[in-house]
Simulated assay, not measured.
Amino acid sequence: MSFFSSQSLSLRKSAPLTDKEFDDLSTYIYELAGIEIPKQRKYLLENRLRSRLGELKLNSFSDYYKYLKFGPNKQKEVEIFCEKMTTNETSFFRDAKQLGVFRMAVLAPMLQKLKQSGKKQIHIWSAGCSSGEEPYTLSIMLHEMLKMSIMGWRIRITANDISSAMIAKAKKGLYSEHSLRNTSKDIINRYFTKEPGGYLVHPKIKKNIVFEKINLNDTAALKKIPKSQIVFCRNVIIYFDPPMKKKVINSFYDNLVPQGYLVLGHSESLHSITNIFQPMRKPGGIMYQKMD
């Protein structure tokens, strides 16, 4: 999940966003989702929300702020607001080099150890899953590694995002060629069906995944996620301020079993946030392990 596309939206003539309105709206989304909108991004927030003012026939951002907090469809509007503030640019097998490191240094040894112990079950949490490409990629990876023996495993991938629209798209599992731009033809042929609207994920890949809407700022909701051996949270925490980053990372730490792994985006780091994880540095990526 990533935030703030530079693509301009069609603008409606209305009063410009004032500093007070920006403060009100940015504070509200921070309290709601932990997303920090720096002052220099004011124009992006204005561009993103102006089209919504037109749809609601509102004349100012103050009117929208009141509608957002006190309107008759508050819950629905909060979802729309979060969707307006997020850009979900992703793809299958995104950051292939990092995934290769993860496969060889983390996933393969873990599967071997679980097999030897007789506990053939694994839970992976994809936090901030956007439109589903990441958890489906992880499911495909498990199928590729375990082959037919996967039938003897209990596998669950919990996939969460703050956007209801993204969760609905992920559940549908229908993707364009652009989403599959980093995917080999062999993988596409094995795990997708060509449909008039795109490529549909095979049911055997879907059945291991549970998609649910979640807000990473909701500590109580995060505590309900089943204990995980691996947590993926790529390209999300970079948009949080330091207190929110620490809060979310602590939730991941609490969720992970001992010796479990946290995987962040290739440009993200826990440096200066926390030292509760042990970094595993490999050419092409860093993984973080819970040592206790």
Score class of each variant (00 low, 15 high):
Phe211Pro: 00
Gln7Ala: 06
Gly284His: 05
Lys76Phe: 13
Thr86Lys: 08
Ile35Pro: 05
Glu21Ile: 07
Met151Phe: 08
Val263Trp: 02
Phe4Leu: 08
Val210Leu: 14
Thr90Phe: 03
Asp24Lys: 03
Asp63Phe: 04
Gly71Tyr: 03
Met166Asp: 02
Phe92Ile: 07
Phe192Arg: 00
Tyr239Gln: 04
Gln75Met: 12
Lys13Leu: 13
His178Cys: 04
Arg52Tyr: 12
Met148Asp: 15
Lys224Gly: 04
Gly132Ile: 00
Val201Leu: 12
Gly54Glu: 12
Asn73Ser: 11
Tyr288Ile: 03
Met151Thr: 13
Pro109His: 12
Asp218Arg: 10
Ser131Phe: 11
Lys97Cys: 02
Ser6Gly: 07
His123Thr: 12
Arg48Cys: 05
Pro203Asp: 13
Gly118Trp: 06
Phe277Ser: 10
Lys204Val: 10
Leu56Thr: 01
Met291Leu: 06
Lys97Trp: 00
Pro72Trp: 01
Ser91Trp: 02
Asn275Trp: 05
Tyr261Val: 12
Leu56Gly: 02
Tyr261Glu: 04
Ser139Gly: 10
Gln259His: 11
Phe93Glu: 05
Leu25Asn: 05
Lys120Asn: 10
Ile155Phe: 06
Asp23Glu: 15
Ile155Thr: 06
Pro226Ala: 12
Leu56Cys: 04
Met151Tyr: 09
Lys42Val: 01
Asn250Glu: 14
Ala15Ile: 14
Lys206Leu: 08
Pro283Met: 06
